[in-house]
Simulated assay, not measured.
Amino acid sequence: MLYLEDIKIGDRFISREYEMTLAEIKQFAQAYDPQPFHTDEALAAEHPIFQGIAASGWHTAAVTMRLWTECFPIANGLIGSETSVRWPRPTRPGDKIHVEVEIVAITPSRSKPDRAIVTYITQALNQTQDVVYISTTKIVVFKKETS
C-alpha cells in the first residue's frame, strides 16, 4: 500500500489489460445505461456517431476504477474529492483496455498535516493505444502513521 511519502509528482502506474466483451457491454447497459447503441447491434450499426455497439462510458469508467485499484494501491483507499471525465473515443467489444496513471500535483492540507490532495491524470487506452477515457482526479492521501 502506498502512503503520501511513497509518491511524487511524475510517478506513473500502469495496469493490466482488461477485455471488454460484447456480452458484458450489453449486460452493463441493460442494468445501468439502456440505450440502443449499447444494447442492440442492428440499431447501433445505424447510429450516426457510433456506427456499431459501443460500451457505455460509465462501463468504461467502472472498469477503469477496477484497474486503478489494482495498479494504484493507495493506503486507506482511493478517496475521491473531485474529478473531470472525457470519453474521446468509444470502447468497442473486443477492446483490451489498460490504465495509465500519472501523478501531476501534490497539495498538502493546510489544516490537517497528516494528508494531502494528490492530483493525477488517468488514461484508459485500447489495444491500439487509442484513448477511450481520460480523467483528472483529486484524491486524499494520508501520511504513514508514526509511532
Rank of each mutant, 00 (worst) to 15 (best):
Y3M: 14
L4F: 11
E5F: 04
I7E: 13
I7Y: 08
I7W: 09
K8D: 12
K8S: 12
I9V: 15
G10A: 06
G10D: 07
G10F: 03
D11T: 13
R12W: 04
I14L: 15
S15I: 08
S15A: 12
Y18R: 10
Y18T: 11
M20D: 02
T21E: 12
L22S: 05
A23H: 09
I25M: 09
I25A: 02
K26H: 05
K26C: 07
K26N: 10
Q27L: 07
A29C: 01
Q30H: 13
Q30L: 15
A31Q: 13
A31H: 11
A31N: 10
A31I: 09
A31T: 06
D33T: 07
P34V: 14
Q35V: 09
P36I: 10
H38P: 00
H38A: 03
H38F: 05
T39I: 13
A42L: 11
A42M: 08
A44N: 01
A44E: 00
A45V: 02
A45T: 05
E46T: 04
H47R: 06
H47T: 08
P48L: 11
I49P: 03
F50S: 11
Q51H: 14
G52W: 08
G52M: 04
G52S: 10
I53W: 00
I53Q: 00
S56T: 03
G57N: 07
W58T: 02
W58P: 01
H59Y: 13
T60R: 04
T60S: 02
A61Q: 01
T64R: 01
T64W: 01
M65A: 07
R66C: 01
T69L: 13
T69I: 11
T69Q: 12
T69F: 12
E70Q: 15
E70H: 13
F72M: 05
A75Y: 02
A75C: 06
L78D: 04
T83I: 10
S84T: 08
R86T: 12
W87G: 05
W87E: 03
P88Q: 10
P90M: 06
T91D: 01
P93Q: 15
G94C: 12
G94L: 07
D95R: 04
D95K: 02
D95M: 06
D95T: 03
I97R: 07
I97H: 06
H98S: 14
V99K: 03
E100S: 12
V101N: 03
V101W: 00
E102A: 10
E102V: 10
I103F: 05
V104S: 03
A105I: 01
A105W: 06
I106E: 10
I106W: 08
T107I: 15
P108N: 15
S109F: 08
S109A: 09
R110W: 05
S111C: 08
S111L: 06
K112Q: 11
K112Y: 08
P113F: 13
D114N: 14
R115W: 09
I117G: 03
Y120L: 12
I121D: 13
A124D: 09
A124F: 07
N126C: 04
Q127S: 14
T128V: 14
T128Y: 08
Q129L: 06
V132H: 02
V132F: 02
Y133E: 13
I134M: 09
T136Q: 11
T136S: 07
T136W: 05
T137E: 08
K138P: 00
K138D: 08
K138R: 08
I139D: 03
V140S: 09
V141N: 03
V141M: 14
F142N: 11
K143S: 14
K143Y: 09
E145Y: 11
